[in-house]
Each structure stands twice: as C-alpha cells, then as structure tokens.
C-alpha cells in the first residue's frame, strides 16, 4: 500500500466531474424499443409451406383427384385394403376406393367446413363479445352468464346433443361448430374488449362526448383486431379437431362422402385384417395432424412476436 496518511482513504472524497460541454442539452432518452419486424422461424416456415400445400389441395383437390371419391380404381380386382400400387398410389380403402382421391376430396371438406365454422364463430363471438364489453355491466352480466353455462359443457358434448337433436349435414356441422366455438371466441373478445375499455384513451373519447359507434370502430376495434386475428389460427386448430372428432365418431360428415375424420373411422378395420394395408387409417390421421401441427407452428411464431400474451388470455 502506497497511500500516506494525508491522502484520502478513498477517491470518493475527491469531487469528480466528467467532462461536458456547458451547453449540453440532455435530450430525453427515447423509452420505446425499436419496432420489431415479424419474422418466421425455420419451424414457422415449414408450417407455412405445409398449410399452403393443404390449402391448395383443399381448393383444387377435387379437380385433380385421379378418381371420383366413390369410384373404384380397379373394378375388376375387388379386394379391401389394397397396398399402394400404380393407379392407386396410397392403396384402397375398406370398399376398395382410391385413398389418394378420397384424401383430396376429404381435404376440401374438412378444411372448408372448419374455415367456414371458424369464421362464423368469429362473427358471432366477436360481435357479442365486443358488444358485451361496450354495453355496460347488465348486458355483459347476462351474456357472460349464458356463455359460462355453455362453456361448462365439454365442446364434444354440445356437438353430440345438437347432432342428436337435428341430425348431421354439412350446413348443420358448420353452424354447430361455429356456435360451439363462438362461446370461446366470445370470452376472448370480451376479455380483450374489457381490457381496452378501461384504457384512459377510451375514457377520454367518452368524456369528449363520442357515440358508441365511434368508440367501437375508432377506439376499440383497431386495438382488438390484431390480438383477435392472431388467435384465429389457434381457434382453427380446435375447430378442425372438433369436426374431425365428430366425423370420427360417425356423427359428422356422413358416408359415402369423404372427410378425414370419417375416413379414419370407416377404415379402422384395417388394423384387424392382418396383411391388409394400414395406410387407409394412417393417411387421413397424418393429414389432420400435419395440418394442425403446421398451423400451430405458425401460431407459436405469432404469439412469440406478440409477447406470448395470447396463450395467457385463454
């Protein structure tokens, strides 16, 4: 130690001043982080390409399919669960129809029904949910309690009850799935709506004397749209699973029409007829799984971008 008794024990006793220009302005530091750009992760890119692939099949599949959905590729050689062979690249099903063609027809039905049902769920759920958030405590209370009653039933049970009551057809399936999932969308839309309603800028607009129309369209909707749209993918997954499960139980799309869920069910016999091909069960199951998992990969990217807040809301 080379300090002498006269020197301070610490340099803290000296008055240190960093060099600075006397006229320095000390601008306030910007406190918001730079805007992030949305970018797909590698997994997200795989997701997008798989979803795009299935959407193309859903749109054009019925026109590109080698056979009609109920045509027999080999009328002269009838045998169930045939292994893949030229002319039927995925083999044949329990009544010797071409799996590949049925898969392509099924794509447009499964995906089409699901998309329309999800859109319906959004229209009903968002309208009522935002409506409840804006309309004040009484309307909100009534709507929310009714919604809670429906939410306290497992979705598949609601589906079963409806099908038991009014039977099964494609429009009924769309409406059923749409209304069943409208309850979930309602809850989300209401939660987002209420969250925005308590923001000061909404109160400021009300205090200004703005009417409800302005509040909903200019103050609430622009802020609710993004979280709602980014939730669409997740909802679509659940609707696809719901529709496929109903079809799998034999209560959805009715034979002889092809649909991925019902294809799994009608070909379950392949697991018992040893020696037959198992592709008739595996192919539609894999088709659904790839589609829903691929959507999920995209959803993950979106929710990571929006701060992962979405999953916390549901």
């Amino acid at each position: 130690m080379n300090s002498t008794p006269h020197q301070p024990a610490s340099y803290m006793d000296e008055h240190f001043v960093a060099p600075a220009a006397e006229d320095e302005l000390f601008e306030e530091l910007q406190d918001s982080p730079p805007k992030r750009k949305f970018r797909l992760s590698p997994a997200g890119k795989i997701g997008v390409s798989i979803v795009a692939f299935w959407l193309l099949i859903a749109l054009f599949g019925p026109f590109l399919a080698p056979y009609g959905e109920n045509d027999l590729p080999f009328p002269d050689d009838y045998s169930e669960f045939q292994a893949p062979r030229p002319g039927a690249w995925l083999g044949t099903d329990f009544s010797d129809r071409d799996i590949l063609s049925r898969l392509m027809f099924g794509a447009s039905r499964t995906i089409g029904i699901s998309i329309f049902a999800t859109l319906l769920a959004y229209m009903v759920g968002v309208a009522l949910g935002i409506g409840a958030a804006v309309s004040g405590p009484r309307v909100d209370m009534v709507l929310s309690r009714i919604n809670d009653a429906f939410l306290s039933l497992p979705t598949i049970m609601l589906g079963l009850v409806v099908v038991a009551a009014v039977g099964s057809s494609i429009p009924i399936l769309i409406v059923t799935a749409g209304l069943v999932y409208a309850t979930v969308v309602y809850r989300l839309a209401r939660a987002i709506g209420v969250e925005i309603m308590v923001m000061d800028f909404v109160e400021a607009a009300r205090l200004r004397g703005e009417n409800t129309f302005w509040l909903v369209w200019r103050e609430i909707w622009p802020n609710a749209a993004m979280p709602l749209i980014s939730d669409f993918g997740l909802r679509l997954i659940y609707v696809i699973l719901f529709i496929s499960s109903l079809s799998f139980l034999g209560l959805g799309v009715q034979p002889p029409r092809a649909d991925w869920g019902s294809m799994v069910r009608e070909n379950l016999g392949a697991f018992q007829s040893y020696g037959g091909s198992v592709i008739p069960v595996v192919a539609p199951a894999v088709a659904i799984a790839t589609l829903t998992i691929a959507i999920n990969l995209i959803v993950d990217d979106i929710s990571a971008f929006s701060g992962g807040k979405l999953s916390g809301r549901i």
């Binding site: 006793d13 008055h15 240190f16 960093a18 600075a20 530091l29």
Partner: peptide, 11 residues
C-alpha cells in the same frame, strides 16, 4: 449517473 456513465461524483 446518466445513460450508464458517471457524470459527477463526490462527497
């Protein structure tokens, strides 16, 4: 301190 730097220091 300002912006991660010492501007002035002392008793």
């Amino acid at each position: 301190l300002r912006d991660g730097e010492v501007k002035e220091r002392g008793p």
